[in-house]
């Protein structure tokens, strides 16, 4: 073997890890095609795209950072309220609202990230849960600001880029959400393949060793948590803008629980899991809603129990391995 051969092999291997796989092109091609082929479903698809972004955000925290969060709705709702209040105050440009929500949620994420740095899974679950509960109670009580249980009323959103008015069928909204999702996905993809992204994986894999190779463990977690909060805030803003309504429900516990389920359905730690999970979850919800809308919660519960008792990996073994391979999850 010549001296250059291992070098070239190593280069190729590192490039290969980050290379775009055919399945990824197919995924995004199909996603883009859905806008043209399913115009009648744009309202539902828009919601799916928003939850896909929200689930992508949780994947950054859980799949890459290794933090079990039971209160991720805090950042989703915070972003929603930020965008909604800005619109209420007369600043109706959607992109401005998005930026404001991103900043607000990232700031909240940054501050609260220090609470989850240490402690067991249980402590982290309780801390994330309490943060979301505190926010929920605040939104509930500060009626003059948030509208309390009635939600934020009378939000009007201006035309996108000053040209495209949001329509009732969700055509503009879906295109808008898709583009935002795609751009943020690209950024997330770059980041998880960067040296920073690898150090976050290292911290999740073994925090003791991560420190022993000179990584400031806390900074990694603060970084990824803040970034995830920013993503969740943007997802919340998208929902607020496309429904022109913000309610307490955006901060509710079941949001966080549903989100965990979505991510787990699709698989943790390879970025596509949350997006696939959001699609499956919403499709199921839509299907069950046609049969027995009242008892949706029961079926969600049953699904969660079965998932765990039978074994997540076993249920999805085939499809998950295939999906991970196709979308390229390799160490």
């Amino acid at each position: 073997m010549s001296a250059a051969a291992p070098h070239a092999a190593a280069r190729a291997a590192l490039r290969e890890v980050a290379r775009w796989k055919p399945a990824e092109y197919a995924f995004w091609a199909a996603t883009a095609a859905s806008w043209f082929l399913l115009p009648g479903q744009h309202l539902l698809l828009n919601e799916i795209a928003i939850f896909a972004l929200f689930a992508l955000s949780l994947d950054l925290v859980l799949g890459f950072g290794g933090i079990v969060s039971l209160g991720h709705a805090a950042y989703f709702g915070f972003g929603g309220y930020a965008a909604g209040m800005l619109a209420q105050a007369g600043y109706t440009d959607p992109l401005l609202g998005l930026a404001a929500a991103a900043l607000a949620s990232a700031a909240l994420g940054f501050v609260t990230s220090f609470l989850v740095l240490r402690g067991s899974d249980l402590t982290r679950i309780m801390v994330t849960l309490s943060v979301s509960l505190v926010l929920f109670e605040l939104a509930n009580r500060l009626t003059w600001l948030t509208g309390g249980a009635d939600g934020l009323q009378g939000i009007t959103i201006g035309p996108l880029l000053g040209r495209f008015d949001f329509d009732l069928a969700g055509h503009v909204a879906y295109a808008y959400s898709l583009v935002v999702l795609f751009v943020l996905f690209l950024a997330a993809r770059r980041i998880v393949h960067s040296p920073f992204g690898w150090t976050v994986r290292a911290v999740r894999g073994n925090a003791l060793r991560a420190a022993a190779i000179g990584l400031a463990v806390d900074l990694r977690l603060v970084g990824i948590y803040t970034m995830a909060a920013l993503y969740a805030g943007i997802a919340g803003a998208l929902l607020a803008q496309s429904t022109q309504f913000v309610s307490l429900d955006m901060l509710a516990f079941h949001r966080s629980a549903d989100l965990l389920l979505m991510l787990v359905i699709g698989g943790v730690g390879y970025l596509y899991g949350g997006m696939i999970g959001a699609l499956v979850f919403k499709a199921m919800q839509n299907w069950v809603a046609d049969i027995t809308p009242e008892y949706w919660q029961f079926w969600i519960g049953l699904l969660l129990v079965l998932l765990v008792v039978i074994g997540r990996e076993r249920i999805f073994a085939g499809s998950l391995v295939l999906a991970r391979r196709a979308f390229g999850r390799r160490g």
Binding site: L62, I125, L260, E294, I300, G301, L304
Partner: peptide
């Protein structure tokens, strides 16, 4: 199982019990 699995599982029980009692 992992704590994540335990969380998912017990939330599932909570949801089922809530829906059943409501029914």
């Amino acid at each position: 199982k992992s704590h994540l699995d335990q969380v998912l599982f017990t939330i599932g029980i909570v949801f089922m019990s809530m829906a059943t009692v409501a029914y």
